[in-house]
Structures are given as C-alpha cells and as structure tokens.
Design a protein around this nucleic acid. Structure first.
Lengths: 242, 242
DNA sequence: ATAGATATTATGTACAAACATAATAATTTT
DNA sequence: AAAATTATTATGTTTGTACATAATATCTAT
C-alpha cells in the first residue's frame, strides 16, 4: 500500500483516513466509477477500526465526494473533482467557455483610491490606495469578458507582479496569501456604454455580471473581483449535493 | 420530555435523533446561545447510546447548524434557521430576491412529449409523455421569473398534485423521491418574444437564464427545470470554501 | 489577594462486536 | 429456460466501553 496511517501522530486517525481518502478520490481509476476498497478491508489495510474509518467516509459522503450504496460498495461521485489543491478553482465554479481558445489582453494595473463600498469591504480608510487590475479576456477581435480586481494592501501585490500567471497561484506562492473562501453574486444586466465598448456589443445588450468576494482562512478580505461576461459566451455551472 | 424516540420504528435511531435535534434547534431558548443538553445526558434522555447520538449531532455540525466546543458544550450556530425542508433550497443556492414579497401565479400543468434533449436527459423514448409545470413568480403586475419544470415519469407526479407546496417537499413526502444532486447552468440571454411578454419586458432586454438538472440519490434524473429571471430583480449567490 | 495546583466537565478519539438489510449472485425447483 | 429460493457481500445501525483533552471552576499555598 502506498497510503498508510501513523498511529503515533497527534493527528486523529479519522482525519488521517479522511486525507488518504481524498488522495484516493483523486486517482484516475476511482474517477472512472470503480469502487474504492470495502470498509472492512480498508480498515484492516489502514490498521484502524471500521468505526473510525466510517467517520472519515461519512464526512466525504456529506461533502458529496463519495457515494455509498448497500452491497454495491462505495465509489467516487461523478464530477467530484476533489484533489485538495485544485479544489479551489473548480469548486469556485469558474466560468466555463465553449471550447474557444482564449487569452488575456489589455492588462492594466494601477493604484486607485477605494469608494465607500470597497473601503467597507476591505475595512480600510478612504485614503488607502488599492491595487486595481483590469483585464480583457477572449480574442482581441472578440473579447468575452472584462475583469476588474481590487486587492487588499495586506496581500502585498504590486504592479511588478506577474499577472499573467494564474491569480490564486500568484497570491499563494509569491505572497503567501491563500484564498480560502469566496462569495459570489451573479446577475444579468444590460451593457453600459463602457462595457459595450470594451466587449464590442451594443449598449443594453445582455451581460452576465458577477461579483466575487474572496477571503483568506481567517476570513479576512483579500480580493474583490467583478466580471462582465458577454451573453451566450459563458455559462456558469454549479453542482450541489444534499 | 416532549421529545422522544421510537425504538420500534423502522426509521434509524440516529435519523430520529437528528430530527429531534432539528426541533430543538428551532426552539427559541437555544437560538439565544443556550447550550443544548450535553451528549451523555441527552443520550440517556432519548434512550440511545452516545455514539448514535453523535452520528446525528455530527451531521448537524457538518451542516453548520450546531457548534461544538470542548468542555463548553454544544450550541446552535447563530443564524441557523434549520427547518429540514428549507435545507435543500438554501443549499441549492436558490435565487435571492431583494426583500420583495413574492407569490406564484399563472400555474400551468400539462402532459407533453419530450424533445430530443429532454428524452436524452431522462433516458426515455420520444413518445413517453412528461409532466410539464410552468409558473410565473412575482406579483401579477410585476412578474419576476418564469419557471418551467419537467418531471421523470418514475416520480409519479400528476396534474392533481398540489404544486403550491414547496416542490421538493412535495416530491419527498408525496412521492418518496428525494432530490439529492443538482447541476445548474447560469447564463445571460436577451429576452425572446415569449419571455418578453410573460415578464413584461422589452424584447432583447437582459435575462438571467438558469437550467437545473436534478437527480435522486441513485443519480437518476428526476427533474429538469429552467428559469428566466428578469435582470436586476435577482441575484444568484454562491459561497464556496476551499 | 493572587498565583499555582487540582478537580471537574463535556466533547474528542478509538475500539470491538453484533445484527440488520439491500442488492446481487448462485443455486435449486418448476 | 424461467421462476423461485438461497447464499453472499458490503454497507447500515447500534451498543458498550475506555481513555484523551481542552476549558473552566475550585481549591490551596504563598
């Protein structure tokens, strides 16, 4: 067995088991509908009791990552993209494009003073400058999305950062800030003049509008991000289990 | 004790305990930060083992309704409005209205033959009639949403069902079908003529469009539901943790 | 009085052991 | 060959038991 449990560790056995199961879930063989080992065997393999193992499995079932069926066994839920590290973006329900090759262009980074809403969200004064990043995504002849991001000064991003890298990777690796919680609001609006120009559409035409509030593990605000998506170009997908 | 457990019932003890706890949670005294009885006492009061009780408590802790703290005891999470029937909807990220009183009107229920997409989703033949339910939500002078639902024949809903009841409660209590998984797609579109008429807006004006695919625990399709939301009336919120 | 030691309390972790039950597989009977 | 019966398998339920641990309360010695 590649996976094993450390009985001398301070980490509870059921937590260790949970982590191992998350690794299992990420394995290709189990993504394809194959049952994970049965409880009795797995408990024995890991050297823990079935009761303890079940605590771990229960949690993942609650999370919707595993599906149990009497006699049939336990398997990974279809669409459970687990993988603890990648979780965030797929879980954060990133917009999905219809197979069109996209890239970023027209990247603008600058310092800007917050308005009242921003200052309130970031809990800073109105004279504290924030880093603002604005970019268009799509193809130059056919832009799809306009993104605008603001970062809390605490994060420490500057115009010198390489914003061509995946954003949450940049925050994590260069600034040690881990995005742990996000709240999003999605609505439809008519394109304003500015947006119409940027996205090359008619004023008033339908736009999918998304706000995203991002927090770190301590629930401190780290980013405010808004996106304007050209209608019909993007679909937002959400999957939820009871 | 007002609450008690039926040891002869086919309903598992931990499920009964879970339900009792949900009632407890709804009680005013516990909404105000008072600890619920401790595990050992409560288990004895209910006549079940502490282990079994913990299965129930665990689930509610996972749902965020209860908060446990060593030595301090277990109390109801602030803002936990429990109520089992509401659970699913809040979990499924139902659209949120801006504090406007709404009701359903113009309810239409009929049998209809599926198109290719519907037949494929439900995995039925093109000549199997499906129950179609269509309704407007909002105020008669100001409709906000147009919903259209199709149900798999297996579910057993008929035009005689009381569609004024919460839908997932109806499915669960009257037809024993539990909605366990939903996939949603959200996009922005311009209002078609039909939608423009129904929602009293101009043709082409921005509409938030949502498709929802609902499955039972065995991942069998049970409902296909689409919604057209008038722009600016609705915001779709999503919260996700890493 | 106050710092420090000690007891208490309620949750946290973990095990072993049974029996129940649903879904399937294997076998027997018609 | 089809239908009915039986066995098997893996999860589902439940109990009893024991010790660990964190937070608080109580007592004790300075």
């Amino acid at each position: 067995m590649r996976y094993s449990i450390d009985h001398t560790s301070a980490v509870p056995l059921h937590v260790q088991a949970e982590n191992l199961l998350r690794q299992l879930i990420a394995e290709e063989q189990y993504q394809n509908g194959k049952n994970i080992p049965n409880e009795v065997d797995l408990a024995e393999m890991l050297g823990i009791s079935r009761t303890t193992l079940r605590i771990a499995i229960n949690k993942l079932v609650f999370e919707g990552l595993l599906i149990r069926k009497k006699r049939a066994g336990t398997k990974v839920a279809p669409g459970a993209v687990s993988s603890k590290s990648n979780n965030w973006l797929s879980f954060s329900q990133e917009m999905q494009l219809r197979g069109i090759p996209i890239r970023n262009f027209e990247l603008h980074v600058s310092w800007e003073l917050p308005d009242k809403n921003l200052a309130s969200f970031f809990n800073i004064s109105l004279d504290t400058p924030l880093l603002k990043m604005q970019r268009l995504r799509g193809r130059p002849e056919e832009p799809f999305v306009l993104f605008i991001s603001y970062f809390h000064p605490r994060v420490g991003v500057t115009p010198d950062d390489d914003f061509k890298r995946p954003l949450y990777e940049l925050l994590e690796q260069e600034h040690g800030t881990i995005a742990a919680l996000s709240k999003e609001e999605i609505s439809a609006i008519g394109a304003t003049e500015l947006i119409a120009t940027k996205l090359s559409v008619q004023e008033g035409s339908p736009i999918l509008f998304r706000k995203r509030y991002v927090y770190d593990q301590a629930e401190r605000p780290i980013e405010y991000n808004i996106g304007y998506y050209k209608a019909d170009s993007f679909v937002y997908t959400v999957e939820s289990t009871r």
